[in-house]
Design a protein around this nucleic acid. Sequence first.
DNA 1: CACAAAATGTATATTGGGTACACAGTTAGC
DNA 2: GCTAACTGTGTACCCAATATACATTTTGTG
Lengths: 257, 257
Amino acid sequence: MPEAREQVPLPPGLDLLWGRRERGKRGPRAGLSADAIVAAAMRIADAKGLEAVSMERVAHELGFSTMSLYRHVASKEELLQLMWNGSALGAEHLVIEGDDWRSRLRTWAIIQRDMLDRHPWITQMPMAAPPVAPNSLHFVERGLATLDETGLDDADKLRIIGLLSSYTLSEARMAHDAARAAAAAQAAGDGPSGPPVPFDSLLRELLDEQTYPRLYRIAWDPAAATVSERDEFLWGIDRILDGVAALIERTRQDRSG
Amino acid sequence: MPEAREQVPLPPGLDLLWGRRERGKRGPRAGLSADAIVAAAMRIADAKGLEAVSMERVAHELGFSTMSLYRHVASKEELLQLMWNGSALGAEHLVIEGDDWRSRLRTWAIIQRDMLDRHPWITQMPMAAPPVAPNSLHFVERGLATLDETGLDDADKLRIIGLLSSYTLSEARMAHDAARAAAAAQAAGDGPSGPPVPFDSLLRELLDEQTYPRLYRIAWDPAAATVSERDEFLWGIDRILDGVAALIERTRQDRSG
DNA sequence: CACAAAATGTATATTGGGTACACAGTTAGC
DNA sequence: GCTAACTGTGTACCCAATATACATTTTGTG
C-alpha cells in the first residue's frame, strides 16, 4: 500500500475514506478492492453477526486468500471503520420532509434508528476513534439542516444532534443486545434445561420487595410490558424534543426580550 | 464448578451474581475466589485498559495459573459480566440529596457519569445481555426514588431512568473513545510524522464548504470548542430534564383537569 | 525492447488468547 | 481409612490477526 499524499497525517483508515490513499499504476490490475472487501464484510455481519467477520471468512467469501485483504486494507480495525462508514451509505441523498423542525428532527432520529436496525452490528463495533467518516458527517449535516429556521445558534444545533444521536445509538444497542441474548438463550434452551425464561419473569424471580421496592412493583404490574421497544424509543425521542422545544422557546424570548 | 440449585435457569453468570451458585464443602479450601478474580481484572482494566485483561494476565496478577481461573468463573464472558456488576459496587448505600426531583435526578445522572469515568472500560464492554446485575438494579432503584413525589406513573419513571442512562452511557462512551484515540495518536505521533493533529483542525482539513455547509461553518467558528466535554454532557442532561419537567407538568394538568 | 520498479496475490510461520481435558494433591463425611 | 467432591495446574488444541518472503504481473524508462 503506497503512502498517503503528504498532507495532514490522518488517523488510520481515514485517508482511504477521504480518497487520499493513492494507488500506483504499475503492477497487475487488482482483482480486489477495499469496496468489495467492505461489502463482503458487511454481508457477513448482516447475516451472521459481527463476530463472524474474520479476515479469513471475508477473503473466502470473495474467493481470495486471507492475506490478500491486507493489500487493500491496513488492518481489521480499519476494515471495521470502513464498515461503519459503509453503513451510513446514502446519507448524502437523504431528503427529510416535514413542515416544522420538530417533525423533521423526529424523522431524522427515526431514520438513524432504522439504519442501526438494518445493520445491528454497528452497535457492537469497538470504536477506537470518533467516527469522522464522510457518510456519517453527511448525516450530521442533514440533521443540522432540520434546525435551520429555529433561531438557535450553531453550537446548540450541533449539541441537539449529538444528544439525539447518543440516545438513539444507546437505545439501539440495548435493543440489539437484548435480542442477541434472547436468541442465544433460545439456542441454549434447546438443550437440556428446556425453553429460556423471558426477561420479565426473570426479574420477578430475582427482585425481592424489601431491597427493590419500586422495581418490584413495576415487575409485578400486569399492565406493564405491553409497549413495544420501538414505542419506548419514540417516547424517549419525544421527551428530548420537548426539551428542545423549551430551549427554542427560551432562545426566542431572550432574543426579543 | 457444581450445578446451580434447580430453579429458574439463569443466563450464564447471573446465577453467581445472585448467590445461586453453591460451592461444595469437600476438597481443599480455595485460595482463589470469583471476587478476587474480578477485583484483579478490574485493577488491570483500570490501569491498562480492557484489552489488557486476558485470562493469563489476571491469573498472573494473582499468582495462579491461567487455568485456575476457570474453577471460579465459567468463561471470560462471565468475568466481564462480573466486572460490570463490580463497577456499580456501592450503589446500595447511595444516598442522593436534593430538595426537588430535578436536582436529585440530575445528581443521579452525574453520579452515573462519574462511575463510568472511574472505570472507562465499562463503555467498551461487549455486552451480550441486558445487565441484570444486583448492583445495577440497586442503582436503578435509587434513580426511581428520585421521582417519588412527581405524580408520574411507574412506567414513565422507569422510562425516564432509561432515557437518562442511555444518554449518559453513550456520551461517556464517545468521550472515552475520543480520549483513547487521542492517546493512541499521541503514541503514534512520537514516531516519524510528528505530533498528532487535534480533532478540530482535522475537521477543518476535511470538510469542504459546498458539501457540508453547516458543519463547515461550525468547524471554522473561532468561538466554538471552548466548552468542556463535561459541560456539553450537562447541557444534554438539562435538555432532557426540561423534557421531563414538561411531562410532569402535563401529567399534573391531566390529573386535575 | 530489456529491465528495474512497483504492485498484486499467496503460502508459511509466528504470536496471542480462550479453553477442553486429564491428572495430582486435598479435604469432608461416612 | 476410604471415597467423592474439590482445587490448582500442565499440556494441547483451536482460532484469528498479521509479519514476511516469494512468485508473478504490469509499467515506465533508458
